[in-house]
Simulated scan of single mutants.
Amino acid sequence: MTYAISAALQSAVFAALNGDAALTSLVGDGIYDAVPAGSVPDIYVRLGSEVVREASDVSGDGAVHFFTVSVITTNPGFSSAKAAAAAVSDALHDADLTLVRGILISLRFERAAARRIDAASARQIDLRFRARVSDD
């Protein structure tokens, strides 16, 4: 197993989201690894948690990364959040990302959960993805 590709995968995911015209038309530059202090846009995307499992085989070291990308909005209803979540999913599902270390073998959407947050004044959709990487 190797966790060494985690930072490379995160950087590639962040770049893919920032480079996606459909997503940026919905959230502008509101795509964050860490949400900045102070005010944030009415709708934004945040890279979230990650769980990594061993996936080495005879070809070499590898891992499966399960990571979350969240869409958060204070806009009423779920409509704008769902549009942005769809754009995130379209940008990442089956994406062919180049990593600075290792190789991305596959990147798949796995599931999503939508909920009200902040005493129901905001909405959040968490999208979970599965990335298989190899350290070749």
Rank of each mutant, 00 (worst) to 15 (best):
R53L: 04
F129Q: 05
A112F: 06
V27G: 01
G30F: 07
I31P: 01
F78S: 07
D90A: 15
G30W: 08
K82S: 13
V100E: 14
S89R: 15
V58K: 11
V40D: 04
A21Y: 06
D126C: 09
F14M: 12
V27H: 01
N75A: 09
L17F: 09
L47W: 00
A86T: 14
S134D: 05
S70Y: 02
R130S: 14
D29R: 04
S6C: 08
T98H: 05
L9C: 04
I31C: 03
T68F: 00
A63T: 07
G28E: 03
S79M: 03
V88L: 10
Y3S: 12
V35M: 11
F109P: 00
L92M: 11
I105V: 15
M1L: 09
V45R: 01
P41W: 04
K82R: 15
L17W: 05
G19H: 04
S121R: 13
S121G: 05
A86S: 12
S56E: 08
A15N: 03
D33I: 14
D94P: 01
A55I: 01
A12F: 06
E50K: 11
A114R: 00
A12G: 09
F109V: 00
R101Y: 13
S80N: 11
R53S: 07
L107W: 08
G77N: 07
A4F: 02
F67A: 05
D94I: 01
A86V: 08
P41R: 03
R132D: 13
G19K: 06
